[in-house]
Design a binder for these strands. Structure first.
Length: 279
DNA sequence: CTGCAGGCCGGCG
DNA sequence: CGCCGGCCTGCA
């Protein structure tokens, strides 16, 4: 068991971070804390005032991992100020979701998770990811409970399409199967994609079956540090059409967001998404 | 019983 | 090219 405390937290609210739709494996506990499974292990985090207590069962340096995962080096206040300028809508959205942070999650896990998210609902997405982890991931004990890491590409490549169908993937089974093959055989190299500029990386990701514009942007934003990526889903389509432009064309919305929100479009997207979905 | 949910794919005009 | 129906499954 490793422990770590984060002091002087600003713009950091557990509910906003974990409920804004970027992650699927964090569960709220009765005492208000959250337990989550990340690449390196299991983490529990609780917070009072501007101080977060973390205990974890994981491999690696807990401080390094937390700094990276919770995006602690980014000044969200500054970004908020930039986004708010001359924008009353954004001001409201930010006020509502001010404690949101973009988590730096695992690329491979995000790839598979967001392929699964297509035309799906959140409870089922979470359950499916849980099923996959239980069946193919490593087991970890934490505070008397059992958790399962998300499987590595090699581990998941043992699953056939039929195996996947049994895990409740539905029609997405073939996408997950083929995506896994491409990663394992090296046809797709996520580390390489991460280093590319946004549009090249997006194009490359969209070569993977089951990955379209929206899924690609989610992977880029939530696991490849591309804060300029702006995933356009049904909610964002609605809210952008209501507040900013008279079009539901995804390409146009992307272009507009890029012009208006620039290098922080992805963070603007999270505030808008969370605000719209919760209100 | 339909309709639909954090899209994507493929076929058609 | 842009548009539109179909797709697993579960829940309203």
């Amino acid at each position: 068991m490793k422990k770590f405390t984060i002091n002087n937290l600003k713009n950091f609210e557990l509910d906003h971070i974990f409920e804004c739709g970027q992650c699927f494996r964090w569960k709220k506990q009765n005492d208000g804390s959250y337990i989550g499974v990340i690449k390196q292990g299991v983490i529990k985090i609780s917070k009072d005032n501007d101080c977060a207590q973390i205990c974890a069962e994981l491999s690696g340096d807990i401080e390094e991992i937390c700094k990276e995962y919770f995006d602690l080096e980014t000044d969200y206040k500054n970004i908020q100020t930039i986004l708010c300028k001359d924008d009353e809508n954004m001001k409201k959205a930010i006020e509502y979701g001010q404690g949101i942070r973009i988590l730096n999650q695992d690329m491979w896990e995000m790839l598979i998770s967001f392929i699964i998210s297509a035309a799906n609902n959140i409870p089922r997405i979470s359950k499916t990811i849980e099923n996959i982890s239980k069946e193919y991931g490593k087991k970890i004990e934490f505070e008397g409970n059992t958790f399962y890491l998300f499987p590595t590409p090699e581990e998941l490549s043992k699953a056939t399409k039929e195996d996947l169908r049994k895990l409740n993937l539905g029609f997405r089974d073939k996408y997950v199967f083929e995506a896994t093959q491409k990663v394992v055989n090296g046809e797709i190299n996520l580390d390489k994609i991460e280093k590319m500029p946004l549009n090249d990386a997006k194009k490359e990701l969209m070569k993977i079956p089951g990955v379209g514009a929206k899924v690609a942007d989610c992977i880029l934003l939530f696991s490849m540090k591309k804060k300029e990526a702006f995933p356009v889903d049904t909610w964002i389509k609605k809210v952008m059409n209501e507040l900013y432009l008279d079009s539901t064309n995804i390409t146009k919305i992307n272009e507009y967001a890029s012009k208006r929100f620039g290098m922080y479009a992805g963070i603007a997207q999270q505030y808008l998404f969370y605000y719209k979905r919760e209100n």
